[in-house]
Design a protein around this nucleic acid. Structure first.
Lengths: 173, 173
DNA sequence: GATATTTGATATGGTCCATAACAATTATCA
DNA sequence: TGATAATTGTTATGGACCATATCAAATATC
């Protein structure tokens, strides 16, 4: 490691700062200043996304559905008769990585691969009855526990505005 | 794989749907319907975040800085004299995972670890002169190429509203 | 009918994230 | 003071997610 002269000087200053920094009366260390970080959209976006996914997983704990799995079920329900490539690509999932995800859903009898009679290479995806039932329950959980809490926090109008802006970024950026 | 009777029936329907589905005049396959997915905040949030990070990396290609590395440099600049644990934890990075990240920055002479004289267990973090210079250039790139494009897309007022809502989610959800 | 393309699948490597464990150092407190 | 606990940086390790190359079977193309 090499530190230039001025860097060494600033490091001495840093040491002094560390020594001189006062903790609060309760003995807690002073909180760090986020500074420009709190203005960086990417930073705040990432942290918000982590919080939302975290809460999603908690709400779905009883059904054991991850966001990715939930999105697959939703998309297959809305688009019956599509094959793996189509479903995976519209979700931004690469075909190789989609295989294990589907294996999981199929082993839990939530979804089924069916050889297409038109093109015997492809597998058509369908929700099983259990898959439909689970998805229905999942939607209810998301609506009542997850999205509703976001409405509380932001307000209905703001939530819609947020969704619109994020869609714009996702589609046009 | 087991499919219930009704699921089998719906799969037949799915097969028919696949057979009956018309492609566009140009021969392109019909686009899938996102349906409720486009209303799921988590889904849109994740996609927007990926786009923003992707653009960030493109803007920073000349400086070879990832979002995480940039955030470390920003935080160290704003909080000189803090140790690894403090910097890492406020960024949500676990101490073990912070080591390699710092090794990288230090090997590029952007940042330096300095043994604290107060507590000889801890390493105080400082930006080197090169680190300060690179960070200055990075900030300019982010402002002119990255954040400015978001302003174009959303408008200044909307961008600020978006940031506020995301902060609320990140901090209070 | 020979060649190219597509589909699902496997293998594999990279990155990020999380936990356990360790040596050195410091804090606690009997 | 001295034994014990806690903290700091670090290593090792495993899991989740993501990306590429490759393959056999099936289909498309010409």
């Amino acid at each position: 490691m090499t530190v230039s002269k001025t860097a060494e000087k600033s490091s001495e200053k840093a040491g002094d700062a560390a020594k001189g920094r006062k903790d609060t009366a309760e003995g807690l260390p002073e909180a760090l200043q986020l500074g420009e970080l709190s203005e960086q959209l990417g930073y705040v976006l990432k942290r918000a996304q982590l919080k939302v996914f975290e809460n999603f997983l908690r709400c779905m704990a009883s059904l054991q559905l991850t966001p990715a799995q939930f999105s697959v079920l939703l998309l297959v329900e809305k688009n019956p008769g599509r094959n793996q490539t189509e479903i995976a690509s519209t979700l931004g999932i690469l075909r190789p990585n989609f295989v294990a995800l589907l294996d999981n859903l199929e082993s839990r009898d939530l979804c089924a691969r069916i050889r297409s009679t038109n093109d015997r290479r492809s597998h058509i995806l369908v929700l099983t009855d259990k898959g439909k039932a689970v998805l229905t329950r999942a939607k209810k959980l998301v609506a009542t526990k997850h999205e509703s809490r976001l409405n509380e926090l932001l307000g209905q109008a703001n939530r819609e505005a947020l969704l619109e802006m994020l869609s714009k970024i996702a589609n046009e950026f």
